[in-house]
Amino acid sequence: MASTTGKISKPARSRSFWRDTRDGYLFIAPVVLGLLIWTTFPMIASLILSFTDYPILKSPKWVGVQNYVDMFSIPTLRVMQSLGVTLTFALTSVPLTLIAALGAALLLNQKLRGMNFFRTTFYLPTIVPALASAFVWGWLLNPQFGLVNSILTKFGLPKGEFFTGTSSALPTLIFLSLWGIGPTMVVFLAGLQSIPESLYEAGKIDGANGAQLFWNITLPQLSPTIFYNLLTGIIGAFQYFLSAFVLTNGGPVFATFFYNLNLYEKAFKWQQMGLASAMAWVMFAIILVLTLILFKFSDALVYYEVKK
């Protein structure tokens, strides 16, 4: 209790202040330790490693910015190519998923009998483990025996190559991401249900039609949700790995060689730990830049109920 005695100029810290501080740090100790051991130190180490040449069994050798230069100048590393694949995926699959999820939410928000069944059904693909789901799709879209090609033939359409075609493999993966709209759809549904009915009533009195109500009420009210899911979707796209790893292994001819798959191979197939660290930092930098751009846009486009 030394702090409460003698000092007059400074307001004395009360007994409860110190007890709260001690308790507070005791309670959050796990995350403080976790942030230091599993975030801060590895981040610093990874930044340093990115400036080294480090085949894991030898000691790291300082090479300055060589890894960063190599990434952008040596085509055989395929860094730019894989970045292109990931960005293509992110910029098509994320908006498509959002539109589909919003469409599904509007559809499922109708007051009809049996709607719970449909909601469950639309959500179901997301609970199937990603690996199981990838294998099922691989089999559904098997060019030789797959059900999808059999259906296409039945309608007189040509058979698709899907994962086996250089130009069709990536679009196929993008298309498949639509089966994962479940969680986003649920968020939109909750958003739709929280829009006050009075807004629509007012709109109708002013003579607005359905499309106008959607553009001027529904969309602005949902815009924070859309923005948030756009952001997490793009961050998620950079993590995209599993389907490309187990179904196409980056092929055919690197058509689905995602950035994260490239990074994985550099680190764990070729043991280029320095280069892989540099790739991870470039990924982080791109995510940060995209986030900043999105936030800039959001000021103009996202409607918040309470302006700070």
Binding site: G24, Y25, V32, L35, P42
Partner: peptide, 25 residues
């Protein structure tokens, strides 16, 4: 307690951090 906001924001900020950044070390 002092520092609560710092640690909370630090915690939340890790959502943005791709695991690949810390994975190799």
């Amino acid at each position: 307690f002092p520092g609560r906001n710092f640690w909370f924001i630090f915690t939340i900020a890790t959502i943005m951090l791709p695991p690949q950044v810390t994975m190799i070390p």
